[in-house]
């Protein structure tokens, strides 16, 4: 399992490829589901120029590990990889990647979705958007 919070940009595709090659055994998995969250340049019909993502070092990682662990067991996953960005982020940059490896697609899809939903509701991250109208903290989420 790989859980990381990073304050620098990353390429989600190469992260997933590198982790799979390093850790997953050839022939073990039949399904890989990947979700990538990327920063938009709009929210609530307003333009967003940039955002700042704050986290609680220690607690955020612990929450992510717990969420991943729960889904590994609930969906009989072979492995999971979560990388989450924090700090200053601009539109087009990846924010999060979740990859779930399982024997079959049902488990991989369910776990990838479940991890993302739990991450959005339970992991301590706070978003401040820079808009034309000013800077503001966001306290709700777009429906999944």
């Amino acid at each position: 399992m790989m859980i990381e919070v990073r304050d620098t940009g990353f390429d989600p595709w190469s992260e997933v490829a590198a982790y799979q090659q390093a850790v997953l055994g050839v022939g073990q998995f039949g399904a890989t589901a990947v979700f990538i969250g990327t920063m938009r340049d709009f929210n609530d019909d307003d333009r967003v120029a940039a955002m700042y993502l704050e986290h609680y070092p220690g607690m955020t990682e612990r929450a992510l590990e717990r969420i991943a662990d729960e889904h590994v067991h609930a969906h009989d996953l072979l492995d999971v990889c979560v990388v989450h960005r924090v700090g200053d982020i601009t539109p087009g940059e990846p924010i999060v990647v979740v990859a779930a490896w399982a024997a079959h697609r049902r488990e991989a899809f369910a776990a990838c979705r479940g991890i993302m939903e739990d991450l959005k509701s339970k992991a301590p991250f706070w978003k401040r958007e820079e808009r034309a109208s000013g800077s503001r903290w966001v306290e709700h989420n777009t429906p999944g």
Binding site: Y56, G58, M59, R62, L119, K120, S121, K122, A123, P124, F125, W126, K127, W137, V138, E139, H140, N141
Partner: peptide, 27 residues
Amino acid sequence: NLDYARADTAVADGDEVAFFPPVTGGR
């Protein structure tokens, strides 16, 4: 100490207590 707590959770010497808004993404 890095776990969600409530207003009536006991706080002991040496503990770390944090306060924050609802996480972005959660209602």
